[in-house]
């Protein structure tokens, strides 16, 4: 009995090495990571990866279907009404969409976290003001505000990115304020303050690293939201303006050809869904790893 138990022990360990690997790195998460990595590579290397210039016309090859539907390798994902290569446009659009979402998320995180710190540091009327702003932001549908601001301010890329950065700052502000208040209750912040550190040093070097994991998890939530907002506005023709193109623009353009050339809108749609899905999966996984309290 005991002997059998002894001989049985090493086996599960031996077998579980791959099992343990997949437990720490679930296959779905690995796929999501691969997709996000691919998107980043495409975003950074768009100029080298695109087979044609995104606005180059090929009038002899208009509305060519993609490769598996009777098309040729010349235009692997087909062409649109003007004979522009869908693959090249897709690559350039991925770059615009990913970069806008990235900068938008970073702006929101920086702005929100700073306001959260400010609220927790000064308390009283400053805190009341910031909390009122948070309530206001949370109670208005941002798409409506964005629509109004965009169309009336005209549309430059810089303004558009800033607007995306205003989208979900309140989430970070709320988290940063709450966590900073509790950090100030804990000994370490008080101890450093007693040692004579400045407020900048306390918040930047001590409180921020302690709450960073929660903020990073929040970024995985707001990043897909920003992609969805950007593509929605661009789809309505009020976001990224031609000749630039984002994934939303492509879908909006492809909508005109839904009966004759559905591939024009299907590829960018698939990229949007896969990207937001991958980041959500990655976010869930990160949350479990970094921040068990959020579960």
């Amino acid at each position: 009995m005991t002997e059998r138990a002894f001989t049985a022990i090493p086996r599960p360990i031996e077998r579980s090495r791959t099992a343990r690997f997949f437990e720490a790195w679930p296959p779905l998460t690995l796929l999501a990571m691969a997709w996000v990595a691919l998107m980043l590579v495409v975003a950074l290397g768009a100029d080298w990866l695109a087979p044609y210039h995104f606005a180059a016309l090929d009038l002899k090859a208009r509305l060519q279907p993609p490769i598996l539907f009777g098309g040729t390798w010349r235009h692997a994902l087909g062409t649109d009404e003007l004979g522009r290569d869908v693959l090249s446009r897709l690559i350039v659009s991925i770059r615009i969409s990913v970069l806008i979402a990235l900068f938008g998320t970073l702006i929101a995180a920086t702005l929100g976290t700073t306001l959260g710190f400010v609220a927790a540091h000064f308390r009283r009327s400053v805190e009341w003001l910031i909390l009122t702003l948070i309530d206001f932001q949370a109670s208005m549908p941002f798409l409506i505000i964005a629509l109004a601001v965009l169309a009336f301010f005209g549309n430059s890329l810089v303004l558009f990115v800033c607007l995306m950065g205003l989208n979900s700052w309140e989430r970070y502000a709320r988290i940063a304020r709450g966590l900073t208040l509790s950090a100030n209750e804990q000994g370490y912040a008080g101890a450093i303050r007693q040692l004579g550190a400045s407020s900048w040093r306390i918040y930047g070097l001590h409180v921020l690293p302690n709450i960073a994991s929660t903020l990073i998890v929040s970024m995985t939530i707001t990043f897909p939201e920003t992609i969805l907002l950007e593509s929605g506005l661009s789809f309505l023709g009020l976001g990224v303006q031609p000749p630039l193109s984002s994934l939303g623009n492509m879908v909006g353009y492809g909508r005109e050809y839904i009966t004759r050339a559905s591939w024009i809108l299907l590829f960018p749609s698939a990229v949007i869904i896969l990207t937001t899905l991958s980041i959500s999966i990655l976010g869930d996984w990160l949350r479990d790893r970094l921040d068990p309290t959020l579960r």
């Binding site: 593509s231 879908v251 839904i258 749609s269 949007i272 869904i273 899905l277 959500s280």
Partner: peptide
């Protein structure tokens, strides 16, 4: 639920139209 959550409404709308 995750699929519905991450899919933009215009994509879902166009897929339904298609």
């Amino acid at each position: 639920s995750v699929a519905g959550f991450t899919m933009p409404s215009f994509v879902l709308a166009l897929l339904l139209v298609l």
